[in-house]
Amino acid sequence: METILLPHLPQYPLHIILFKDVTNAAFLRQQLLAGNTDFEYAFLDASVLLSTTQVLAAVFRAINDMMQGRMKSRNVHSEIVFSLSANNNISESFRRFGVGETSQHILAIKVGGDFTKIEHHLLKNVEGTPVPFNDEQLAEMQDESKLRKVYRIDTTSRTEAEAFVVGSMALKGS
């Protein structure tokens, strides 16, 4: 697990861990649906994430919306999932970007909190292998057909796709 401090939001440390080969995604999803506060994380399906830049842009948007009182979901972690989408349909955002019953690769994000407790809780409850959170690992986990469907992109250039997706996320609701 690593902690990332966004330069413009140092008061909100991000604790991030990427898991591959997760075997209990259905359990994690059920905890979220049940509203279990012990599992208040942004659990993302890594197969539809283009880059670390995209993820950090969604986190920035969610924290900024929280600070400005503009959240459309119940907490900053669900707002991160919602922020990944280019449209304003919350349920569609969760279906496309949130952990699913069969998700194999999961990115867990916690805004704030005690690093040691969060790391211990995630390593205890997520049955998967932790790997570094970087673009190379995300690229290995991507599902090309899902990416094309979710983002409606035809480009093969990662840079072009990332610019299109992050731009779409930024323009949502403006």
Rank of each mutant, 00 (worst) to 15 (best):
H15E: 02
T129C: 10
I63C: 00
L18S: 05
S51R: 03
Q31D: 05
L147V: 15
S103R: 04
F82K: 09
P130K: 07
H120A: 15
T155G: 10
E140F: 11
S145W: 14
H120F: 13
S85G: 04
V81W: 02
K149H: 14
E2R: 13
G128Y: 07
I16Y: 00
M141C: 12
R70L: 13
I4D: 02
T129W: 05
S91D: 15
L33N: 09
N125Y: 09
L14R: 09
R96W: 12
A62G: 00
F27W: 01
F39G: 01
S73I: 11
K110E: 07
S168V: 09
P130I: 03
E2A: 10
T3W: 07
K20I: 11
L147N: 07
T159G: 10
N24V: 04
E162R: 03
L147T: 08
L123T: 13
K117T: 15
S78M: 12
E136G: 09
D154Y: 11
P132L: 12
F164V: 12
Q11H: 14
Q54Y: 00
R29V: 07
T52F: 00
T37P: 08
L49K: 02
A46D: 06
D143H: 08
V150A: 06
E160V: 11
V131I: 14
V165T: 01
K146F: 11
K124E: 15
P132S: 10
D21G: 10
D21H: 13
G167Q: 08
D21M: 06
L32H: 06
V126T: 02
I118V: 13
F164M: 13
V111M: 00
P130M: 03
T155C: 09
G100P: 05
A161E: 09
S91H: 13
T23I: 05
H121D: 07
S47T: 09
D38P: 03
Q142L: 02
K172Q: 12
G69M: 08
T53W: 05
I63W: 01
H121Y: 10
S93H: 04
T116F: 13
E140S: 14
A139Y: 12
L32S: 06
A57G: 06
I16Q: 01
F27P: 03
N89T: 09
F97W: 06
N36S: 04
V111Q: 04
A62I: 06
E2F: 01
Y151H: 06
